[in-house]
Computed example of a mutant assay.
Amino acid sequence: MGGGLTAALAGCVDALETSVDDPFAVETVVDGLAHPWAMAIVPGDSRLLVTEREGRLSLVDREGGSHTEVDGAPVVYVTGQGGLLDVALHPDFPDDPRVYLTYSIANDDGESTTAVGRARLEADDGDDPELTDGTELYVAEPWLDSSGHFGSRAVFGPDDRLYVSVGDRREDGFDAEHVSQDRSNDLGTTLRLEPDGSIPDDNPFVDDEDAVDAIYTYGHRNAQGMTVHPETDELWQSEHGEEDGDELNVLEAGSNYGWPIAHYGCAYGTDEPIGDEPADRDDVVDPVYYWKCGSGGFPPAGMTFYDGDTFPEWQGDLLVGNLAGQYLGRFSVDGTDVSEKDRLLEGRGWRIRDVVVAPDTGDVYVAVDDGDAPIVRLTPQE
C-alpha cells in the first residue's frame, strides 16, 4: 500500500436544525469530507474509521469531532464511481488490528478493476495513525475500460470469512452471455475469502473447473450495501437495478440472483422489461424486496440492522441509504418479509452513502455523499 499525508483537523459536534416531527436530533460530527464512502466503528474506542472516495482514510473522534488522516492508505484509481471504497475491521480487532479496504486500481493500459487489501492499523497513541504491512489480497478479473459498477462492500460474516461485492462494470447486453451470468470471471458476484485472502475450501464452486473459486453468489448488477442480520446471521445485500429494479437480497451460497436474465426493472429510458421476472424462474433467487419499473426506484447504498437501545422502536429494523432519493430508508423485517416504514432525513438534499450503529451508545451515524460532506449522528430528541 502506498503512502499519504497525515493531518489533524480540529472540529466540534454541532447540532443541525431538526424537525419537531423527527424522533431524533441530527448533529454534525465532522464536516468538509470529499465523498465519504464507508464507516467502521473502532471497537472499545470513541473513534470512527471513514473512507473518502478520492483516497483518504481518516480516524474521526466521535465525541470531539476532530479527524486525523491515516498514513499508508493504498494508492487508488479515482474515476467515476471508483476510488477508495469500503472499510472493514478484522473480527478479532483490536487483538488483530488489521483493516480491510476495497478500492479501484488501474493498469498501464488505463483499464481498472476492484481490489481488496489489508494492513495493520497503528493508532494507539492517536497522534500519527498509519497503516503498516499493507498487502493486496485479491484483484477482480477481468480489467475493463469502465468507470462504473465497482461494487464494493466488504463484510465479515458470522463464519469470520470476508464477503466482498463486485459490480458488473456496466457491461452491455441483457442475455445469458452477460458477465454476471458467467462464473469464469469475478464480475457481478459476491466473493468469499479467508482473512488472508485465500479461498475457503467450502466455497460453492471450488470443485467446478469452469468457475472462479472465490465466487459465493453471482448474477448481481452492482451491490453497494451488505450487512449481517444480528439474530439470524443471514447476509443481506442491497443492489442497484437498471431503470428501477433495485433490490434487497438475502445471500444463499452458490445462488444466481438473476441479472440480467431476470429483473424487475426496465432498460434505461424505456418501459421495456429486462428478462423475466425473477419469481417466474426457478433457477434464480427472488429478492426479498424490490422496486418495479415505474416505481421511481430506490438506488441503495450502505445498510445495517438497528440493534441498539437508543431507538427502541427501531429495534430489528433495516436502515438503508438512498442515493438519488436522498433519504435514509427504515424497513421492518420479519424473517424475509420486508416493508418500508419511514423515510428518515428526507428533505435535506442528502445522498445517503453509508450508515452504521455505534454499539456503545446505540446512536446512528450517517455518511452523506457529496464533495463537501458531513458525517452526522442521530440521537434521541431531548
Rank of each mutant, 00 (worst) to 15 (best):
L5K: 10
C12D: 15
E17T: 12
V20N: 15
F24G: 06
E27D: 15
T28E: 12
V30F: 07
V30C: 12
L33D: 03
I41V: 15
L48N: 09
L48H: 09
T51L: 09
G55S: 02
L57P: 03
V60K: 01
V60I: 09
G64L: 03
S66Q: 13
T68K: 03
D71F: 08
D71P: 08
P74G: 10
V78M: 07
Q81D: 10
V87E: 07
D92W: 14
F93T: 08
D95M: 09
D96P: 08
D96V: 15
R98V: 03
Y100A: 05
L101H: 01
L101Q: 01
I105S: 04
I105A: 07
I105P: 00
D108P: 02
E111S: 12
S112Y: 03
R120H: 10
D125I: 11
D128N: 13
D128V: 14
D128W: 13
E130M: 15
E136W: 00
V139I: 14
V139N: 07
A140L: 04
E141V: 08
L144Q: 10
S146Y: 07
S146G: 10
S146W: 12
S147W: 08
G148Y: 14
S152Y: 07
P158C: 10
V166T: 11
V166F: 07
G167P: 02
G167I: 01
R170K: 11
E171H: 13
D175T: 13
A176Y: 11
E177S: 15
E177D: 12
S180L: 10
D182T: 03
D182Y: 01
T190I: 15
L191P: 00
R192V: 06
P195K: 00
E209M: 06
Y216P: 01
R221H: 04
V228G: 00
E231P: 01
T232A: 08
H240D: 04
E242Q: 15
G245N: 07
L251A: 08
G254L: 06
Y264M: 03
G265Q: 09
A267L: 08
Y268E: 09
D276W: 11
A279R: 14
A279Q: 14
D280R: 07
D283E: 14
P287Y: 05
K292V: 08
C293G: 12
G294E: 12
S295V: 01
S295Y: 03
S295W: 02
F298S: 04
P300E: 05
F305D: 05
T310W: 03
W314P: 05
G316N: 10
G321R: 04
G321I: 02
N322F: 01
A324N: 11
Q326K: 10
Q326C: 03
F331C: 06
D334F: 05
T336W: 04
K341I: 05
K341P: 00
G349D: 10
R353L: 04
A358C: 13
D360V: 10
T361R: 12
G362V: 12
D363N: 14
V366Q: 05
D369F: 09
D372K: 04
T379W: 14
P380E: 14
